[in-house]
Design a protein around this nucleic acid. Structure first.
Lengths: 109, 109
DNA sequence: TTATTTAATCGTTTTATTACGATCAATAAT
DNA sequence: ATTATTGATCGTAATAAAACGATTAAATAA
């Protein structure tokens, strides 16, 4: 997307937006869902599960890794991906708090 | 972004991703935050609050409206924007449930 | 050693996003 | 009637994201 003016916003705003953006694609939602359910988390299995090519899945995994939501460990010739449960737990708490702000509306409409 | 293959995913996956994507920009986080705090929610006030031009803010408001997170009512020559607290509450519950899935990890790593 | 498997990366195309100035339509004020 | 004011939309430029095939590097198997 166009260069977004992230310097103009707070760290917290950029953090919340950054993780939300990482989750903001159905394939990445599906990947997280898959990793949360399956015992196996080999990259190839994720590719098999999704209606996307290997290279595209690899890109989505990279995006999730960049956001800190998953980690990958090389196991021989394959790679084992896992959720970063701590980061997910933290984001859940942070976004919940943020979404609770408008709980008691003082707005004009 | 490239055309994303949303037809290939479930409604729930597209819904969660869609709202997350709408929240996935610091300016839109800032707008929601602002609307949650201020009594006034006139569009012009939002523009004054953000380090972005009027037309850019208008686009972000449009994105939030499209995701169902805010609504706007015309009041004379200005427009009053408000949070859709129901939609926000629903998303908070849904995303929390989703992020709770990996609570007890059965993964391999 | 050579062939195979696995997953990341490169290169490319298509489409979306971000951002802005300029214009436009509507309402309000003079 | 004319002139602001307000906020959406248009047009456009720059950049990022989505998707894929092809290639590459690494480890394993033959």
């Amino acid at each position: 997307m166009g260069k977004s003016k992230s310097e103009e916003f707070t760290d917290r705003q950029n953090y919340l937006a950054g993780v939300a953006k990482a989750i903001g694609h159905p394939a990445r939602i599906a990947i997280i869902h898959f990793l949360a359910r399956q015992k196996s988390c080999v990259c190839g299995d994720i590719v098999d599960e999704l209606p996307l090519s290997q290279s595209t899945v690899s890109q989505h995994l990279k995006a999730l890794k960049k956001a800190g939501l998953i980690a990958g460990e090389i196991e021989g010739t394959s790679v084992c991906y896992c959720l970063n449960t701590e980061a997910i737990k933290k984001f859940k708490a942070d976004i919940s708090l943020f979404l609770d702000e408008p709980a008691n509306p003082k707005s004009c409409c």
